[in-house]
Amino acid sequence: MSAAVALSSLLDAQQVWRGRAAPACRGEQPTGWAALDAVLPGGGWPAASLSEILLPLDGVGELQLLLPTLARLSRGARPLVLVAPPYAPCVAGWRQHGVDMRRVEIVTATAREVLWATEQCLRSGSCAAVLAWPLQADDRALRRLQVAADSGRALAFAFRDRRQLAHASPAALRLELEAAPRARVWVRKCRGGAVPAQPVPLALAALH
């Protein structure tokens, strides 16, 4: 066939655009858990994105998952914000994990205002990370948080009940925490990479 053109000449002439996978920058926001960093596509939390953490119950290690990150960020320029936490953060306990509590702002908001406050904090661009406990959040609301996190260059974490796993979510990362028989993290969705088939064991701090 005379009309046939060698592939190499087409490519050399740069008339054909070749898609390639987005270069994943390694370790921009490490989680502080080496085993988890190893399986996440970005080598850590997706930067400027919403991460969803799904829990069976309160008190199963959901904060310990984040505390290394929070400790690192609390030494940075921008403060951390908790929006409508279910309990009061224990100052002594957080300090034991290296978090500077003077850099942590706590926002009390009613169930209806949680999403608004979270979005405002994310969009402001002056928060390093925003942790929110929304009780009622649908697909649209989470998408707004995702967009706000992107425009404010902040890490967003939404803590939700495990039952929400059945519903689709626009979050860049979805982690499910399992408490019994031992603490493990399932990666349920991660943008920019394949979902690992195995859970990541979470070695919670020994308590003596």
Partner: peptide
């Protein structure tokens, strides 16, 4: 050891 959540 101190917890991370404190009840009122």
């Amino acid at each position: 050891p101190r917890p991370t959540w404190l009840l009122d």
